[in-house]
Amino acid sequence: MNELWIILTGMLVASSCALLGCFLILRKMAMVGDAISHAVLPGIVVAFLVTGDRHSFPMLLGAAAFGLVTTLLIESLRKSGVQADAAISVTFTSLFSVGIILVSLFARQVDLDLDCVLYGEIIYVPWDTIIWNGLDWGPKAVWIVGTTLVLNALAILLFYKQLKLSAFDPAMAVALGIPVAFFHYLLMGLVSVTTVASFESVGAILVVAMLIVPAATAYLLTDRLSRMLLYSVLTGCLSAVTGYFLAGALDASVAGAMTVMAGVFFILALFLSPRHGIVTRWWQRMRLRRDLASHGE
């Protein structure tokens, strides 16, 4: 049963990250996802110090606020003439390091250590359960990450057309009267909440991989956005499952193994994708050349 909870947590994290990751990639904002997932660290620590609980609603809100602050900071730096990538790096490294200092300062008083924040402790997930009415309702992490997955899926289902158009052609979206800025901050807010909800299972660093890698894999596999969303969730879940067993076989970090598997699937897609794959294209070229040669005879 414990194994199942761990795998389920991994799959939920992978799915909720992958859905958002698709839009981050299409908006060429992969780095912003990276930035937010790091910059929420001070938010996590502050909220933790206040509530003393790693899974709480205020904590999600605090992190979402920090995520939006990050986005605002990046944008205001960029507007004042700093290059885009420099603006992103400056913002998230500063906020992340503030978070590191906070963790190390208060590490003795509170049960929150750097290892946990950075690399996650997914194997402890099954033991931190919700007890309500004398009943065991399952691990807290599953509930929290599950809720963010529902939240993300709901937002994408409801606002699919707005999110799609703002990603493809933001100028057109504005001209049509779609509140592009609202959807921008909605997406950033969801990324922040998802990052915080996931950080304990996969860690603040590896959550970036789950945000970007499955979505990047799916991008290689299809030419339709709806299928890209589906495939990103599938490869994310597959990475979680295979990663768990890889970690068992190697006796290594679960989160690390899950991320490695996500990377393996990405490389497979890069080489073998039906339309964009490197090997596929090489094979098509060879066949074309052979056909031309045989026609020439």
């Binding site: 299409l26 060429k28 057309k161 707005q162 799609k164 158009l165 990603a167 493809f168 052609d169 057109m172 979206a173 049509l176 009267g177 779609i178 991008y219 299809t222 030419d223 339709r224 956005l225 299928r227 890209m228």
Partner: peptide, 19 residues
């Protein structure tokens, strides 16, 4: 716009209806 966006012609034209 990015013409590598995962979508087809009809879908792009339908975007004109979103407003």
């Amino acid at each position: 716009v990015d013409w590598d966006f995962p979508t087809d012609v009809l879908d792009v034209v339908m975007m004109g209806r979103y407003g």
